[in-house]
Nucleic acid binder design. Structure first.
Lengths: 337, 337
DNA sequence: AATTAGCACTCAAGACCACGGAGTGCCAGG
DNA sequence: CCTGGCACTCCGTGGTCTTGAGTGCTAATT
C-alpha cells in the first residue's frame, strides 16, 4: 500500500512544510530533495497519499500539506528523535544546575524547555502520591490550633493548619507526632492511608478526637495534594505561530490548568515520549496543536510529566529530543538533591 | 486654555473611542452626545485639543483618537471611578468567600479580576516583610539537617532545610526554637534582624555554630522572601485586544515576573489607585498598554499590589472600579483569616 | 509497466482602479 | 462666536485582470 517511495515523499513533504510553513508542490519537492524522480512522478505518488488521507490540499491548485494522520505516520515511522547538540546539553546543565529548591527546579525547567523549543512549555509539579514520607511534624500553635507539616523525599512540603480543636495539650501532640513518624517515615504516600488506619486504637481515649482531626487533614492533603499544580512558560512564542484555531482559544485552554492536567494524564506510558497530534487531543481549543510530553522522575520512577505545546506543524524530531533530554536531566537533578 | 467645552469634547472622544474602537469624528460626536453645538464647532475645538497634544488623527481624513496625554487628563480630571454593580459585588463575595488558604485566595482573586475587567490581571503575593511572625519551628531531620519553618500572620509559610551542619542534637535545637519564638513571635518581619542580633551571646558556646547557620538561613528567607512572586490570569483576553505593539512583545513582558514586580513597585501611593498610561510605563514592550493597580492588605496596612494590564484604550472608570473593589475585598478576607 | 514530458486548466494572491463615504478645513453669513 | 455650506483628502471596499505556482491528464519514452 505504502511503498518506500511514498514514504520518502511524505517525509519530504512534512519536513518542507514544517520549515517553510507553505504548502509544498511537486516541483519544489523535486528540487529540494534528491528523490531521483521527476515532479510528474511525485504528483502521482501525491495522489495516492492524498487518497489514503495522509496529505491534503488547502485548495485546488495549491501544494500539499500533511494531515494529522500524515504527521502521525511521520512521527511513528519516518523520524528519529534528534539528540540535542553539545552546546544545548551544556546549556541545560548550567541552567538547571544552579537550582536550589523544588520551586526553582520547576521554574527553570519550564523556561528552559520553552527556550529550547521556541514553543509553550508545561511542567507538572512532582506529584505527592509518588513520593515517600520523609517526616511529619506537628506544631501546636495555640490552645485550639495545630499545624501539620508533611515533608516528602522529593523536597516537597505540604502544610495545613488544623483549627477549632477541642483542646490541645503539648504532650499529646508530641505523642501523636512520634507515633505518626514511626508509622509513616519511608512509606510511599499511597501507602499512608492503610498505615494510619489503626491509629485511633493506639492513642489514649482522650486524645482520639484530636488525632482524628489531624488524620483527616493529613489524608485530605494527600488526595488533594498539588498534583494539579502546573507551570507554563513561553506563551509569547504563541504569537509567532499561526493556528487554524484562534489564538484566544489556545490561550484559554492553556490557562485552564485542569485541562492541561487531564491532557498530560491521558498521555500514555509515562516512561517514554508521548506525542498527541491535532485532533487526537480531547480538548476543543487544542485541536490545532500538538503536545509532546514525557514523564520525569527519579530513576524510572515517574513523578510527573512535562511537555511542549505547539502547532501541529512543528519540528517533531527536535521537539521530542528537547523534551526527552530535559525530562532526563530533571530526573538526575531530583535524584541528586 | 482648556475651557469646559473642550474638556467635554475630550471626554466624549475618549468614551466613544473606548467603546467603538474607531477614530471618532465631529459628526458622530454631535450625534451621540448632547453637546449642544454643531459639528463645525466641535471641529474647531478638536483643532485646539490637537494642538495641545490631547488627541491626534491616525491620518488626514480620519477621526481623532486620544493620545496618552489625553487619557491622562481624562483619568485625572474627567472621570470618576465607577462603582461595581450589586451583582458584581455579590459575585466577588461568593467567589472569594470560598477560599481556604492564601494560595487559593490569590488564585481566585486573579481570576476574578481578569473576568471582571476582561483584561489581564496580575496579583502579587503578600510580601513577607510587611507581616508579623506567628511561629518559628525547627525540626531535626537527621544528624546534620534541620528544617526551619517560619509562619506569618498573613498565613504564609516559608520553609528551608539547613544542611551540612556540624552536628545536631535534639536538645539544643529545642533550646534554640524556644529562644527564637520568645524573641520573635508578634514582631514585624522587618524587626526580626535587630531582634536576633544578640542570639549568639544567649546560647551555649557549643551551639553557636548551629545557631549561626539557622539564623543566617532565617534572615536570608526574609530578604529573598517571595516578594517577587506574581500570578496572572486572563492572558486569553489579549487576543481580543489589538495593540499597536506586537502581541508577542506584550506576552514577553508579562512573562517576566521581574518586570511586573518593578512596574507594580513604581506605582506610587500603595493605599490608592494608580494608573500608568502607555509611554508612562518604563518597560518597552508595555508602551502601548495601561496598568491600573492598587495596594491591598489588612486595614490600611498594604501588603502587596494587584492590578490589571490592558490596552491604553480601556474603560478606565470601570477598570478602576473593579480593581479598587477587589483590592478592598481581598483585604477584608485576609483580615478575617 | 513505470516514468516523464507536455499541456490545458484552476485558483489564490497581488496589482490596479474606481468610487463611496466619513471626515476635515475653511469661509461666509447668521 | 457659532454654524451651514462646500471643496478636498484619503481610507476602505469591491471589482476586474494578470500572474504564477500547482495540478491532472494524456501521450510519448524508457
Amino acid at each position: 500500500m505504502l511503498d518506500d517511495r511514498k514514504l520518502a515523499v511524505l517525509r519530504a513533504i512534512v519536513e518542507d512544510y514544517v520549515s517553510t510553513k507553505e504548502p509544498v508542490g511537486s516541483k519544489a519537492l523535486a528540487d529540494r530533495h534528491t528523490l531521483g524522480v521527476s515532479p510528474a512522478t511525485i504528483r502521482n505518488e501525491m495522489v495516492a497519499l492524498e487518497e489514503e488521507g495522509y496529505i491534503t490540499q488547502p485548495h485546488t491548485s495549491a501544494g500539499r500539506i500533511p494531515t494529522d494522520k500524515g504527521y502521525r505516520l511521520f512521527v511513528d515511522r519516518l523520524s528519529t528523535v534528534k539528540p540535542l547538540s553539545a552546546a544545548e546539553r551544556r546549556a541545560i546543565e548550567t541552567f538547571l544546575g544552579g537550582a536550589v529548591d523544588l520551586d526553582e527546579i520547576v521554574t527553570r525547567t519550564v523556561r528552559l524547555l520553552a527556550q529550547l523549543t521556541r514553543q509553550v512549555a508545561i511542567v507538572q509539579y512532582p506529584s505527592l502520591t509518588r513520593s515517600a514520607v520523609q517526616h511529619v511534624e506537628l506544631v501546636p500553635l495555640g490552645p485550639q490550633r495545630v499545624m501539620m507539616v508533611l515533608i516528602t523525599d522529593t523536597g516537597r512540603v505540604e502544610q495545613r493548619v488544623i483549627d477549632h480543636l477541642d483542646w490541645v495539650d503539648d504532650d499529646s501532640v508530641e505523642n501523636l507526632r512520634t507515633l505518626l513518624n514511626r508509622l509513616l517515615v519511608g512509606k510511599w504516600l499511597t501507602d499512608v492511608p492503610p498505615a494510619v488506619a489503626d491509629v485511633p486504637s493506639l492513642v489514649p481515649a482522650d486524645e482520639r478526637r484530636m488525632a482524628a482531626s489531624v488524620l483527616s487533614v493529613l489524608l485530605e492533603s494527600l488526595v488533594e495534594s498539588r498534583e494539579e499544580k502546573i507551570v507554563l512558560a513561553g506563551t509569547a512564542n504563541l504569537a509567532a505561530m499561526d493556528f487554524s484555531a484562534s489564538l484566544r482559544e489556545v490561550l484559554e485552554a492553556l490557562e485552564e490548568n485542569v485541562v492541561l492536567i487531564r491532557l498530560l494524564g491521558e498521555a500514555g506510558d509515562p516512561s517514554s515520549l508521548t506525542v498527541r497530534i491535532g485532533e487526537e487531543n480531547s480538548h476543543e481549543g487544542l485541536r490545532s496543536t500538538s503536545i509532546v510530553s514525557a514523564g520525569y522522575g527519579i530513576g524510572d520512577h515517574s513523578l510527573a510529566k512535562l511537555g511542549v505545546v505547539g502547532p501541529t506543524r512543528m519540528d517533531y524530531p527536535g521537539t521530542m529530543g528537547a523534551v526527552r533530554a530535559v525530562a532526563r536531566y530533571v530526573g538526575t537533578i531530583l535524584a541528586g538533591q
